[in-house]
Design a protein around this nucleic acid. Sequence first.
RNA 1: GCCCGUGUGGCGGAACUGGUAGACGCGCACGACUCAAAAUCGUGUUCCUUCGGGAGUGGGGGUUCGAUUCCCUCCACGGGCACCA
Length: 861
Amino acid sequence: MERYNTREREAHWQAVWQREAAFEAAELPDRPKYYVLEMFPYPSGRIHMGHVRNYTIGDVIARYKRARGFNVLHPMGWDAFGLPAENAAIERKVHPREWTFENIATMRQQLKSMGLSLDWSREFATCQPEYYEQQQKLFLAFLGQGLAYRRKSWVNWDPVDQTVLANEQVIDGRGWRSGAPVERRKLEQWFFRITRYADELLQAIETLERWPEKVRTMQRNWIGRSTGAKVRFRLADREEWIEVFTTRPDTLFGASFLALSPQHPLSAALAEHSPELASFLEECASLGTSEAAIEQAPKLGFDTGLEVLHPYLPEMRLPVYVANFVLVEYGTGAIFGCPAHDQRDLDFARRYALPVIPVVAPADQDEETRAHYVRHLAEEASEAYDGPGVVINSHFLNDLEVEAAKRAAIERLEQLGEGEGEVQYRLRDWGVSRQRYWGCPIPVVHCAGCGVVPVPEEQLPVTLPDDIDLGKGGNALEHHPTWKHVDCPECGAPALRDCDTMDTFVDSSWYFARFCSPFAEQPVDAAAARYWLPVDQYIGGIEHAVLHLLYSRFFMRAMKDCDLIDLEEPFSSLFTQGMVVHETYADEKGAWLSPAEVVVGGGKAETKDGRPVTIGRIEKMSKSKKNVVDTDHIIASYGADTARWFMLSDSPPDRDLVWSEAGIEGAWRFNNRVWRLAKSPERSMAAAGTPMPDGAKEGESGTLLRQLHRTVEGVTQDLERFHFNRAVARVHEYVNALTSLKAEDEAAAWVRRFGVETLVRLIGPMMPHLGEELWEALGGEGLLCDQPWPEADPVFLVEDTITLAVQMNGKLRATIEVPSDADKETAERLALADESVQRHLADQTPRRVIVVPGRVVNIVV
RNA sequence: GCCCGUGUGGCGGAACUGGUAGACGCGCACGACUCAAAAUCGUGUUCCUUCGGGAGUGGGGGUUCGAUUCCCUCCACGGGCACCA
């Protein structure tokens, strides 16, 4: 039997699409646009199954929207700066640029073999000077607006590699590469003022209706808005104040101490005159920052000997501690401790024998219970009470509910001038400086006389030097003999370039906007951006739920404030797909085995030479567990369409997809089945373009026609809702019906031909190569990718008769055929007349009959 | 600890707004074709059953004529955040 040669035919159609420039987009103002984008890949080496899934989903949407008449933009590029390139350079002695572009070449080829409807004419890599020049312009624009600024900040410092580490690069308090204990250092760093938009970014989450609720929640939590008060505690004996932030001003009368962060400026100042404090601060700095270390670390403090005055009770004095659990980054870096109603404060108070003063009690306690509650909490409890209730022991706040007490407390603070209501965010400004070579250079010069001087626009781009020695560790740009030495653009005196590069998240925060006009002389061309943006459908992994997606939202606002774009929200609809996972295999010694080394069948597995294999957990594909399936191998064996079909068929796209050999085999069978169905001559010959014969609506042909239109309707709905697995199931059902159409008359021949043509149109977005192949075989005009989407004819969506379920007391007893327009009385009469119903009814009289037209008849006895 | 998800056959999963649970696929079994195998096609496949039925969507309870769907509660798994004052 003739077989479908995927390798040859898929390559053929890819070449045709390329030759015809089928997917190159242009701005066509009279047509509705649709911008679909998948998160662009980091060129790490090769495409993995996660990419295949991501780009398959995006391509289905792109091709479907194109068929629906949209002017589709579907571009691709490379997130090409980053640490792995530098590591490869060190390990393999290749230049990061060379390594990166080799990977890009490989991965581009792999993506092309998937048959994606991408506009390759817009391709760029973020490491190209043409791209990062524009990014440097953005940086300078931000600088001009006060959105980029410089300040000293605490960083994770790797003393061996001589570099700053991101939080994610610190594992159990040690540098991820050097293994050396990480130090806290204060360095001059560049920041983007994302906090300026904290409230706006939070508010606007409500408008992102087509984003997953999960992502919206994560962003809300990340921004972390909390309302409370700033309170000034005056130091006894000095005209100085310590500011604290609290969300519980209602518990101020329960305060028994103040605590400063070890990094609080006052802590450092005091340590200058106190060796004991200095050594305590050192101890705090050396403590691990890992989760485990934090969990186990006791609450330690150092009594500074200072005292502050209570803002409401000037006669009351509170001791000031430095405490290891107070974060410098949040609030003011200082807290007041209310042990009765905060667990951490209670732990601390018990350790240092500080007073515990209950000031909130659960409402509706009788006198005795309350007395017991207060005594217990004050004297022995190890758990603080942070529940609701009424305020006690608190002068003017007494008997108020907690929320009312907060308002009253703030009001009094403001009257006294000792504080005011305030909103705090967890969100901090975005530190973008990286002491790395392979990134976008920060376009400023440091001049002894003029300070920080922006590089003038005509001198951009500030390009990375090629002759670089990455072997020395630390910042290679810093070590470069000549690169950093320039004349100050303002005064002409010898000056130094900023040797830091930008965080790679900067590169990905605006690339989607650049795709609208990838070769423009400014970051974005206003007309192109106005036409294409926002991205209508963005697709990617949940791992970017916060950083990338939040930074991009920030960037659009920042660019808007620089008059570079007129947009706030970059992505109107977001879809986060699940991971591709696979069984893990281990041999008798516990060593991991790759799927290629294992033969699986009937729930058992062994190696190819017959040794026993243990089937382990299903996990994300990873090199370390060896449960990786090679994409090239799959595409070479089964073709891209089969891989795509399988990606869509088994699981809903937002859940994890279990890759299985059996699953891909099933998709392969279906691929061939459709090919044979459409290729068999008796099905494709007759009836092209002729009007529907009279008899087609009757009998077997009529049944198939109705199913055809139902399928079109259903698949359309499914694709709109990202229910690809259901669309696949529907197409399966439809193919089953189409194959079993037995009639041989003229009407059947016509329906068969029309049925196959419709099938080809429906599978086009999902299996595009096979679609083109069969479109051609059917004698279709032009390319399938330019054909309109089939329309369901409502006439065929209504049935003459419907099946009605008949229940007795909610249990199914029969099904009956009734005319689809039958009224309640008819349905009830037919149901009661049913033989099976009569048998179950015996002598009983129905007490009640509920008829839901079109659904069910329930007889209650 | 707090905040989200998710629990349905041997497996992946369907079931729109409370109305025939298990669509479709995988796997398995049997059959057809074949000298044989592969491929292909067909039939069956939730469990129990005395073949009348009965049970069943993580467990328990509730609302309803009727619950996978709504409410309460507990359990398991997954994810996010986490000394955030």
